[in-house]
Design a protein around this nucleic acid. Structure first.
Lengths: 178, 178
DNA sequence: ATTTCTTTATTGAATGTTCAACTTCCGGTA
DNA sequence: TACCGGAAGTTGAACATTCAATAAAGAAAT
């Protein structure tokens, strides 16, 4: 049979290369800074924070674990370990679920709520300083639209233990109402 | 003294909120997919890959460890552990440095180069599928500019064990020349 | 020369994450 | 009812990352 020639790879253009490397920079660096601020100021990890926000927004401040895993972009296993830590820290509790006896609720405690309310202003400030305020209004709009597309794509693609969620967008930054 | 009232936190607008949550989604999800592809197809981690690219582009395919840490956005400690793994895998070797006897070179091996050359086409494809090709040309341009600003800001801010590098932009995707 | 300060790089312990195996229960079907 | 496949959640071991402590050598000052 004739030699099956590989198609020439679709390398990135110079423009794309720059854009990709800048993206990698943000991907690698930004979490470090948010983490550091939140850790120093309130002894919380970014993951802790994201979970607190999600719970604070949910009806009765409780979410089933599998759904919470999806909302916070984590595997169920990882969330399980994380819940242990947060439960030890008194930020959340588990409650078993009436309608499905396999299920568990993650429930925000009073203490968890208080921690979140205290941390939120500083965290927004941190997000603004290292990220949001560095965009022009125009850029915010474009990036917002573009990234929404990407996330939708990734959620649909999925595959594997991770990210079993659907529907609702992503959380962060401000505690839910009341 | 009069009660010192906290200034009202500068919460994100709805627009900003959406944009930020989309950013978090990408931040959390994208690395998972790139990792999975690279792992399955070539048994490399994204960190491995980034280091291989950097070395492939460097003169004599060697870089001092501290500089490499900066280029690949890692702490020196982490890089040190990672080098152990990669050295065990035969992808790189350490060589001690003549001009500074504290120093070490990270040097790309023939095997490392081959691995990279084999992996690169698939990795670009992966980057395109999950990210690059989902942008319009306009969006690529705006995101590229905006993120370049962010990265510059973060590199300057810095603080701590991480990211001691300067100058040169970020690497990824295609092996260096020759 | 000696002291002191800094930079380079590594180490090991503590911590966090991933992965596959497992338990329990739901839901459908014979 | 009993069976079977799949979903919810947990577990522990393997693996990766962080953090603080350390060793060794350059740089600068006395």
């Amino acid at each position: 049979m004739g030699a099956m020639t590989e198609p020439e790879p679709r390398w990135l253009s110079d423009e794309e290369q720059r854009m990709w490397r800048a993206s990698l920079g943000v991907l690698n660096l930004l979490p470090l800074f948010l983490e550091r601020d939140l850790q120093q100021q309130h002894n919380l990890s970014v993951h802790d924070y994201e979970i607190l926000v999600r719970l604070s927004e949910a009806p009765e401040r409780r979410i089933r674990l599998t759904e919470l895993a999806g909302l916070s972009h984590q595997s169920k296993s990882r969330l399980s370990h994380q819940m242990n830590r947060m439960e030890n820290a008194g930020l959340v509790v588990r409650e078993s679920c009436d309608s499905d006896r396999r299920g568990q609720w993650a429930v925000l405690t009073e203490a968890g709520w208080d921690r979140l309310v205290k941390a939120a202003p500083d965290h927004v400030e941190s997000v603004r300083r290292h990220y949001m305020d560095l965009f022009t209004e125009e850029q915010k709009k474009v990036v917002g639209e573009a990234f929404a597309t990407i996330v939708e794509h990734l959620r649909n693609a999925d595959g594997g233990q991770t990210c079993p969620s659907q529907g609702c967008p992503g959380a962060e930054t401000k505690p839910g109402p009341k």
